[in-house]
Simulated assay, not measured.
Amino acid sequence: MINIAVILASTRPGRRGEAVAQWVMKHASQRDDAHFGLIDLAEVGLPPLDEPLGPRSGQYTHEHTRAWAQTIAGYDGFLFVTPEYNHSAPASLKNALDRLYAEWNNKAAGFVSYGVYGGVCAVDALRPVLSHLEVADVGAQVALSMHTDFTNYTDFTPAEHQTAELAETLDQLIAWSAALAPLRTAS
């Protein structure tokens, strides 16, 4: 069975991502083609990058990095729930990505983004980073607008079509995660 991590990227007080991640998990849990686990970066609590060697070395000196590596290694794919901050992804997500290398390799990623314009700039900023980490990102994505998918810019009330967008994103993510399995086994 494919294991997918839903990674809640925002660590900000008052963040909107918790409601979005719970919506994702509600729909994902109804599927029988993968297992889903929620990882909240606010709970992981990674400090700013503090490893003396680059992640390609695989030599992690800090327990928090070793624990993070073990967590990520256990998944076949990732669905990033990310806001858009200043036309990019949050620093908490970039920090989490930058700590590891091999643990990300030969896996797939999808996106559920949110922001004034749907968070699409955050996703555009993440795609080349994930490519360098040898993560295959799927084309389908969910882009949630603060104007139409949140009441008063605070309460998450997704438009009806977003459920179909999520299903398509999950379909692609699971298919790509399964297709990359032979590469993970070989490495």
Rank of each mutant, 00 (worst) to 15 (best):
N3R: 14
N3Q: 06
N3Y: 07
I4C: 07
S10M: 02
R12G: 06
R15E: 04
R16D: 02
Q22K: 11
V24S: 13
M25S: 10
K26N: 15
Q30E: 14
D32K: 12
H35R: 14
H35V: 03
F36H: 01
G37N: 14
L38A: 05
I39G: 00
D40G: 04
L41M: 07
L41P: 00
A42T: 00
G45S: 09
G45T: 03
L46I: 08
P47D: 10
P47M: 06
P48R: 02
D50R: 04
P52K: 07
L53H: 10
L53S: 10
G54Q: 14
G54E: 14
P55M: 11
S57I: 00
S57H: 10
G58I: 03
Q59I: 04
Y60H: 10
H62Q: 08
E63A: 06
H64A: 02
H64E: 03
R66M: 07
W68I: 03
A69R: 09
T71I: 09
I72N: 11
G74F: 11
G74D: 09
G74T: 11
D76Y: 09
F78I: 15
L79I: 00
L79P: 00
N86Y: 06
L93W: 04
A96H: 04
L100H: 11
Y101F: 15
W104Q: 14
N106V: 06
N106Q: 13
N106P: 06
K107L: 11
A109T: 15
G110H: 06
F111T: 13
F111A: 14
V112W: 03
S113L: 04
V116G: 15
Y117K: 15
G118E: 06
G119A: 06
V120C: 05
C121R: 15
C121T: 15
A122S: 15
L126N: 08
L126P: 07
R127C: 03
L130E: 09
L130I: 12
H132L: 13
E134V: 13
D137F: 01
A140Q: 11
